[in-house]
Nucleic acid binder design. Structure first.
Lengths: 132, 132
DNA sequence: ATTGACGTTTACGTAAACGTCAATATACTG
DNA sequence: CAGTATATTGACGTTTACGTAAACGTCAAT
């Protein structure tokens, strides 16, 4: 595995545009090094980008993704105040994830119902075809 | 439980504005009856609205929510073509939900890690306080 | 008769999350 | 050394999902 990555390498790997990556940096989600003017992403930057995309798949706004990313760092250094704040944020995120999980379960069940109805109707149509 | 609902009743119940509800109607997510010009929502409209909000919590765009809502109806009536199309759409949604579920599990684990680190640091700080 | 609570449509405003140029620099490549 | 590829920073455009008035109708209660 490489040590560093260019912006277009990461774009290709994750199927996003370089514009998007620069936008994430602008929004403080990423903070790559520079060689001259060029961005140089290390492995940790790449992981952060992965986390951004995971957050996106869960429908989180970038602002919220940023606070989660910040929690990763905040766990290491910081004062008591900060650490306790982070703990509360962790709880909030957990609550939200649990809600999303329930929503997924419910949606899955609904999909099952829909599919069963569809398959039943399909086989009834095909059955009629055979009868006719 | 009431038979019908006004727009503001539903807004209050679900904590959204009437503007949002009208917007959902405009985007074909809802189709309430009218008494004169006034919208009259029945129980099924209310359930559709619930489904809309569930979709929103999962981060789906309204357009996608609409196709899911359409699947609920498409299961009942329609021709073979339509039914098979719906089945494929069901599969797509299932795949996406499974991805989201994986993302939630991963996020949960990350939150655990973060919290443990935080609690460890907190107790170490408080411990130092006692020692000092 | 008017006030207040609710409803309507029309229309412009806005924040988020990029897309899409344009102009420019830098690097390697034949 | 010209050409091609890749990078940069603006800056304006676009889509989604509403917010926010404005201007008006309706109906019950004071």
């Amino acid at each position: 595995m490489q040590e560093t990555f260019t912006i277009s390498e990461l774009g290709k790997e994750f199927g996003i545009t370089t514009r998007a990556i620069r936008f994430y940096e602008d929004k403080q989600l990423l903070n790559p090094d520079r060689e001259g003017k060029k961005r140089v992403f290390n492995r940790s930057d790449r992981i952060r980008l992965k986390l951004v995309l995971r957050g996106k798949r869960l429908g989180w706004p970038l602002e919220e993704i940023r606070t989660v990313l910040d929690m990763y760092d905040a766990g290491h250094q910081g004062e008591l105040q900060q650490l306790e704040y982070t703990c509360r944020k962790v709880e909030e995120s957990r609550t939200q994830l649990e809600q999303q999980k329930r929503d997924i379960e419910a949606s899955m069940q609904d999909l099952d119902t829909i599919e069963k109805r569809c398959l039943a109707r399909i086989s009834s149509i095909k059955g009629d075809e055979n009868v006719a």
